[in-house]
Amino acid sequence: MTRIATAAAAQTALMDLMKAQRSVFESQQQLTTGKLYPDLKGAGHRAESISAAYGARDRAESYKFSAERVQGRMDMTAVALEKLTESATDLRVAMTTIDGTYIMDQAREAFDKARNALSTQYAGGYVFGGTRTDTDPVTVNTLADLVAAPTAGDVFVNSSRRPVAKLDDQLTLEVGVLADEVGTDIMAAFKRLAEFDAGPNGPLNGPLTDAQQTYLQGEIANVMTAFERISDFVGQNGAQQSRVESMVKSQDQKADYLTSLIGDLEDADMAAAATRFQQAQTAVDVSARTFSVLSQVSLLPFLR
């Protein structure tokens, strides 16, 4: 009976030792990784919740990245539109003077500014090209090129569709401004001026004639129409900028919340893990000594 009891006690001590060693391993792993579980298999019933939270956070971060790219494009579009409004303003102001030479010099500078604005690039693509981002949407480089074109609208080769960005599970936004939509009116004004300068009432060189002044006074209204057209797109782009900025913040907050939720589900309490590790080490020492003692128990001392 003594041998049976001793064997049973030794077996129990061995089981306690193995349990304590397992506890040391688990708490040490938590201290090393900072996680409650080595993988989702070890998370048990929490595995599905953790996996779903990771998936939702990845989607939020992806949508945030997409919204930030759209925001960068819109910011660049806003800068380009500002240059385009400056071009229209410069042309209008030049037309109020009575020096033809000055008017044409300013017109060439204003044209270059408008042309460069409409050819603005962001992240390797043309912001006014629509879905066709690999080709400059403006095909003319000088006023002479513009005069040679059949119409002002013919100098644009952008696509007819704007890029589409998915910014949330339920939100797909059409973004951007097309070159021909915003630039045709101002290019038409440049074209008419250049054609007039090259026509029978030209050139605009030195003091203006009465016919030239009459023409310019009438053309100022057309330039103002072009300016207002550009201003409309400035407003539209600004409204979309605000919406996209809101989406960036929303997705950022969502990702932060889900990161916190994941932490609550799988992150270890480091202080508690350290305490468990120390307790487990003590338990290993005690269990090991107990098992050692029980393993050496014998009846020989009592039979001598």
Rank of each mutant, 00 (worst) to 15 (best):
S160I: 02
D134A: 12
Q236I: 10
L265E: 09
A226W: 06
T139K: 11
A144I: 06
D169P: 08
A114P: 04
Y257F: 12
I220M: 15
Q251I: 12
G42L: 11
P38D: 08
S295Q: 14
D90Y: 06
Q71V: 00
V164M: 10
G44C: 07
A255E: 08
P203W: 04
D185H: 06
T142I: 00
M74T: 11
A10M: 07
V244C: 09
M95Y: 07
Q71K: 10
D180C: 05
Y54D: 03
T282R: 06
F111R: 04
D134P: 00
E82Y: 05
V286D: 05
P38R: 11
P38L: 05
V175R: 10
R304W: 08
F65Q: 13
A88C: 12
L258F: 04
Q30E: 11
K113M: 05
D256N: 08
G263K: 09
Y126S: 07
R161D: 06
G55K: 12
L14F: 05
G218D: 07
F227E: 14
A280Y: 09
T85C: 02
D169G: 15
L204P: 01
T142D: 00
A255S: 15
T77V: 03
V93Q: 14
Q28C: 00
Q21I: 01
L173W: 10
F227D: 14
S295H: 07
I50W: 13
R57A: 05
G129Y: 11
N237V: 12
Q279R: 06
R92M: 04
A226N: 13
T151P: 09
P38G: 03
S292N: 11
Q11A: 07
R57W: 05
I186R: 06
D39L: 05
Q212F: 13
A288W: 01
T97K: 04
A198H: 02
T89V: 12
A94S: 12
E195A: 02
T6W: 11
E48F: 12
S51V: 02
S159V: 04
E26N: 15
R304G: 13
V155I: 14
R161V: 01
E174M: 11
T209N: 03
